[in-house]
């Protein structure tokens, strides 16, 4: 193992008795306090915040339009353009989920249906929102691009049963995803 010793800065006596540094620090934090209270915090206009400091007062002012593309909200299932269930119940998400929030019961696709070539689709697919930690691993592991982290961050439940989302709910939340996947049709 090789390592590079870090050269520590030499402290003068004034530094070592801390008092000056502490006083400086106290001034800095007090400045922030005053600026926050007088609504003159730095970068305030960047955030367009209407509250104290840099904060947006939440229910009145929302940051929905500022949500980044990669924001990880609640996981949802999506359908393809051809309204095919993209999930083939490979259960990789169930396997990877660190919180064990996902339960998949695999099932067979009706051979008469237009996407019979897919053969397999979930019979049941539940995500326990009480367990979900929004890590996004399910989205990352999905080989079929069937599970996506939505931008939904307001999950307030009045009923415990609603915390466990079933397949229908997840598809309703996920909607249709653009971009045709030819893997399971005759084009292959």
């Amino acid at each position: 193992m090789s390592y590079t010793p870090i050269k520590r800065p030499k402290f003068s006596l004034a530094d070592r008795i801390y008092i000056v540094a502490i006083a400086k620090g106290l001034c800095r934090t007090f400045k922030h306090l005053v600026l926050a209270l007088t609504r003159r915090s730095r970068h305030r206009e960047d955030f367009n915040s209407k509250g104290i400091g840099l904060c947006m007062p939440f229910p009145e002012q929302r940051w929905d339009e500022r949500l980044p593309e990669y924001y990880r909200g609640a996981p949802t299932l999506v359908r393809g353009e051809d309204s095919r269930e993209r999930c083939v119940s490979c259960q990789l998400c169930e396997f990877i989920c660190p919180a064990r929030a996902i339960t998949v019961t695999p099932g067979e696709v009706d051979p008469a249906s237009p996407c019979a070539k897919q053969e397999k689709a979930p019979k049941e697919f539940t995500i326990d929102m009480f367990r979900c930690i929004y890590c996004g691993m399910c989205e990352e592991v999905c080989p079929e691009q069937a599970i996506f982290m939505s931008q939904e961050y307001l999950i307030t439940l009045t009923d415990r049963d609603k915390g466990i989302r079933d397949k229908e709910t997840l598809y309703k939340l996920g909607g249709v995803r653009k971009g045709l996947v030819n893997k399971w049709n005759d084009h292959k």
Binding site: L33, L35, A36, L37, G51, I52, G53, L54, C55
Partner: peptide, 13 residues
């Protein structure tokens, strides 16, 4: 509250 103000946020208000 003070912690909030020092950190540029409102705290429990």
């Amino acid at each position: 509250r003070i912690a909030g103000w020092i950190q540029d946020r409102p705290g429990p208000n």
